[in-house]
Simulated scan of single mutants.
Amino acid sequence: MTVLVFGQTGQVATELARIAPQARFLSRADADLTDPAACAAQVAESGAQAVINAAAYTAVDKAENDETIAMAVNAHAPGAMARACAQRGIPFVHISTDYVFDGSGTRPWHPGDPTAPLGVYGRSKLAGEETIRAANGPHVILRTSWVVSAHGANFVKTMLRLSETRDALTVVADQVGGPTPAAAIAQAVWAVSGRLCTDGPSGTYHFSGAPDVSWADFAREIFAQAGRRVRVTDISTREYPTPARRPANSRLDCTGLEHDYAIARPDWRAGLADILKELGIK
């Protein structure tokens, strides 16, 4: 199977390159994500049998003052990719986010639940989902959350960096979700793209790590596994203001993906152990 992947250096794209080096990966120099027509042309000229979009504008706070670029990268470009795929009858797999929801309540979000993004990042990702569905081609939109790995910028690496100079930290405890190893996401989207080429159903699915946890308890597990003696004190979101509002409830119901694609939620604790090992900490 010939697969074209938008993205090369991001967390998921890096992991995809490890499990599927035979795929063709496009860097931002290869494909300008602010130019939807150029992205569509890449699909048309690739001869690919499937396309995965692992590229995105993910600077949640910066997006609040950069809506034009966020919309171009997260909405217009994926829409152009999806339409180009639909014209050729090839599957398109796209990674989205829990930020399409407002984070209210405590039950896990179902894929069909009403969306209500709290900020620009979430709105741009939701707009991307809508353009993909409108293309009406074979597709899977995979919403995920709290992506972590041994590379790129993420919560695990931030906590480890802070632990090098501090023995006590305050961490938000009233936001709850599922940390998701980028390696597991890569495996999921690769499996989905293969199934879509045969008998896999189109639709929107959720995929996040288990069990659900607060940021503060996630930090405690990071330090425990890394052997770092850092005292974590719980604080509220109100005590840690950010330019963009974060969902308080990022729990995702992932049963649909397991039912349709036999892909279960990964245990993020095992994924964390792998990340620490790669970083030379375990």
Results as ranks from 00 to 15, higher is better:
residue 67 E to S: 15
residue 134 A to G: 11
residue 142 L to T: 06
residue 144 T to L: 09
residue 31 A to F: 13
residue 140 V to C: 04
residue 29 A to E: 15
residue 73 V to L: 04
residue 91 P to R: 02
residue 80 A to R: 07
residue 123 R to S: 03
residue 111 P to C: 00
residue 77 A to V: 06
residue 148 V to L: 12
residue 18 R to Q: 09
residue 150 A to W: 11
residue 153 A to I: 13
residue 150 A to M: 04
residue 123 R to P: 01
residue 107 R to Q: 14
residue 52 I to C: 07
residue 111 P to Y: 03
residue 155 F to H: 12
residue 152 G to Y: 03
residue 66 D to G: 03
residue 35 D to P: 06
residue 36 P to Y: 04
residue 75 A to I: 09
residue 34 T to G: 05
residue 121 Y to E: 01
residue 26 L to S: 05
residue 37 A to C: 10
residue 36 P to N: 11
residue 120 V to F: 08
residue 52 I to E: 03
residue 114 P to R: 01
residue 108 P to D: 03
residue 126 L to T: 04
residue 106 T to E: 15
residue 134 A to E: 14
residue 139 H to P: 10
residue 129 E to S: 06
residue 99 Y to M: 05
residue 30 D to V: 06
residue 125 K to T: 12
residue 152 G to R: 04
residue 107 R to Y: 00
residue 56 A to G: 08
residue 70 A to K: 07
residue 48 A to Q: 04
residue 47 G to D: 07
residue 133 R to Y: 01
residue 119 G to M: 04
residue 70 A to F: 06
residue 57 Y to N: 02
residue 109 W to I: 00
residue 139 H to S: 11
residue 63 A to S: 15
residue 61 D to V: 03
residue 144 T to E: 10
residue 67 E to P: 06
residue 39 C to M: 13
residue 90 I to E: 04
residue 155 F to S: 12
residue 55 A to T: 03
residue 94 H to I: 00
residue 71 M to F: 15
residue 143 R to Y: 02
residue 136 N to W: 12
residue 123 R to M: 07
residue 75 A to Y: 12
residue 39 C to F: 10
residue 32 D to N: 15
residue 76 H to D: 14
residue 91 P to W: 02
residue 115 T to F: 09
residue 71 M to I: 12
residue 122 G to Y: 09
residue 33 L to Q: 07
residue 59 A to E: 14
residue 84 A to G: 09
residue 84 A to R: 04
residue 47 G to H: 01
residue 109 W to K: 14
residue 137 G to I: 01
residue 17 A to Q: 14
residue 144 T to S: 13
residue 100 V to K: 05
residue 148 V to Q: 13
residue 39 C to K: 08
residue 60 V to I: 15
residue 112 G to C: 05
residue 32 D to I: 13
residue 82 A to P: 06
residue 96 S to E: 03
residue 115 T to I: 03
residue 85 C to D: 08
residue 124 S to T: 14
residue 53 N to I: 01
residue 58 T to Y: 09
residue 81 M to H: 08
residue 102 D to F: 05
residue 66 D to F: 00
residue 57 Y to P: 05
residue 144 T to I: 05
residue 142 L to R: 02
residue 85 C to P: 12
residue 127 A to Q: 09
residue 96 S to Q: 02
residue 124 S to F: 06
residue 95 I to R: 06
residue 129 E to K: 04
residue 94 H to S: 13
residue 153 A to Y: 13
residue 21 P to E: 01
residue 151 H to R: 11
residue 104 S to I: 01
residue 83 R to T: 15
residue 61 D to K: 02
residue 55 A to Y: 10
residue 68 T to M: 13
residue 117 P to A: 01
residue 131 T to V: 14
residue 134 A to I: 11
